[in-house]
Structure formats: C-alpha cells, structure tokens
Design a protein around this nucleic acid. Structure first.
Length: 110
DNA sequence: ACGTTGACCTATA
DNA sequence: GTATAGGCCAACG
C-alpha cells in the first residue's frame, strides 16, 4: 500500500464526529493537490482496510454525497451522517460550510 | 498495452 | 453565477 493511501486513511480517521471534509482538502493536505480523484479511489480501498474508515464523513466540494452509492446502501451514508448529528438534505450537507473540517486548518502542518 | 472510466477540483468563457 | 473544458493518476476492460 502506498503511503498516499495510508495517509488518506489516517487523515479520514482523524476526522471528528459530526464533521465533514472534502477530497480536495485531503489531497491538498497530502501535497497531491489536483489529484483529488486518487483520494476518492483511496476511499474505495478503505473498505478492504481492517480498521473502520469513516468515508461517509468525506464528501465533495459541494457537500454532495457523491459516494453514497459505493456504500453498502446509499441510505447508509446519510444515516451515518445524521447519526453523528450532520443534517443531510437532498444528499447534501446542510451546514457543510460550518461542519467543514479542513485537515490543513485543524491539523495544520506537522 | 491502449482506451475508457472514475467517491474530483480548478480555470476560463 | 452558471456552463464547459482541461487536468490529474490509478484501476478496469
């Protein structure tokens, strides 16, 4: 497993409950800005990971639950988000801007 | 090995 | 502000 995916899983795992982030933010935090697609692909691999990766806390820039389809059930992602206190309407996070968790701002630079 | 697709983002018109 | 184009890198057919 490349360090890139490992880092992605680590960052996603560090996302606090009730918070959400975007693929681009993670990609930029890893220094792979522009390669946000790789982050999404990493999420695809997150299902094989032994540890649980809160991929449901990761959404696109618009706060849209684009990856809900890749979950066990599209409803599961929204259920998980609502379970953590994240309000989701029309597959979109209502207070996305407020719940947005930027690793660069929160974790800043190590 | 080549071509297409993909849980995206940024830039230009 | 919305719409379209380009880019990025890896996996799949």
């Amino acid at each position: 497993m490349s360090d890139f995916y490992q880092n992605v899983f680590e960052v996603v795992r560090q996302i606090p409950p009730g918070r959400v982030t975007s693929y681009g933010a993670i990609a930029r935090y890893l220094g792979s800005a522009g390669s946000s697609r790789m982050v999404g692909w990493a999420m695809n691999l997150s299902h094989h990971q032994p540890l649980f990766v809160p991929a449901h806390r990761v959404v696109n820039r618009n706060g849209l639950l684009t990856g809900k389809i890749h979950f066990g059930s599209p409803e599961q992602m929204q259920e998980l988000l609502e379970n953590e206190g994240v309000k989701v309407e029309d597959d979109c996070v209502s207070d996305f801007t407020k719940l947005f968790w930027d690793p660069m701002t929160e974790l800043e630079v190590e």
